[in-house]
């Protein structure tokens, strides 16, 4: 039986239940070594929000937000970006290993010299007229994504004395639900700057490998590009339908 009466709340709403993450395994919102968290990260313990309809749904943004050229960051403004050309590819999955198909992936990064095309980035590294640092793709039916870009440079910041960010690419993902929204950074293997970077070290140690891409020789292109593989894993959901319509413990 379907229960689709709009007025009342159908007790038998069959909603996916997204897993809650162990706070000890998550990046904390604030971290002492990252100075600007001090006046920005909330100090009170967050209140648990039950997962209702608003939380288990989310924007399903797709092809209308991307153009084919958005996957290639190396050709902008009529010319070629300077730097080490790299393929960055992988899959967007949930924690049960299910691919997340047709979901928007947005990235942004510094150029090969470590400079962002942004008004507040003023350190003396050159801008590249053919690199704006923005990429967008939608995953395919198997959850795969792929960009062609240049390897971003490390860059200095004022967090502590002689502070440098390890090379990274910023990633933004939606998944299928508000609960799955993720903004993060992809690192490169064996970066010598990890030891002094509070943004990397704020990640609980056991979770750090999941933030680092893997050199992928199989996807390098002879006389063209190196390659790195990075899978993004979003929270999984229990999709099993309920057996009884009277089960009140839903949503």
């Amino acid at each position: 039986m379907t229960r689709t009466t709009p007025a009342a709340a159908p007790a038998g709403l069959h909603l996916p239940r997204y897993l809650r993450e162990d706070p000890a395994a998550r990046t904390p919102v604030g971290f002492a070594g990252y100075r600007s968290t001090a006046v920005r990260a909330p100090l009170r313990t967050p209140v648990d929000l039950p997962h209702r309809l608003t939380e288990v749904t989310g924007p399903l943004l797709g092809e209308d937000r991307v153009r084919p050229e958005d996957a290639d960051l190396t050709r902008r403004a009529g010319g070629e970006a300077v730097g080490q050309r790299i393929v960055v590819h992988g899959r967007v999955l949930d924690s049960d290993g299910r691919p997340v198909p047709h979901t928007l992936v947005e990235i942004w990064q510094a150029n090969a010299a470590g400079r962002y095309r942004h008004v507040v980035d003023t350190w003396p590294a050159p801008l590249d007229p053919h690199f704006d640092g923005l990429g967008r793709v939608v995953t395919d039916a198997e959850g795969r994504y792929e960009f062609l870009t240049v390897k971003p440079g490390a860059y200095p910041w004022r967090n502590h004395d002689n502070a440098w960010r390890p090379a990274h690419i910023h990633f933004s993902l939606f998944g299928r639900a508000f609960t799955q929204r993720l903004v993060t950074q992809m690192y490169f293997p064996d970066d010598p700057l990890f030891f002094q970077d509070p943004i990397y070290n704020a990640i609980p140690e056991a979770a750090r490998p999941a933030a680092v891409s893997r050199f992928d020789h199989s996807r390098t292109v002879d006389h063209w590009a190196l390659a790195f593989e990075w899978d993004v894993v979003l929270r999984g959901a229990d999709q099993t339908p309920f057996e009884t319509e009277d089960d009140g413990d839903v949503a």
Partner: peptide, 23 residues
């Protein structure tokens, strides 16, 4: 069934406007 480890979050940083601006 074993679960895959989740990708940890990170700050958007000061340059989010490059990647997350929509007209």
């Amino acid at each position: 069934m074993s679960r895959l480890p989740l990708t940890p979050s990170a700050t958007v940083g000061p340059y989010l406007a490059i990647g997350l601006t929509w007209e």
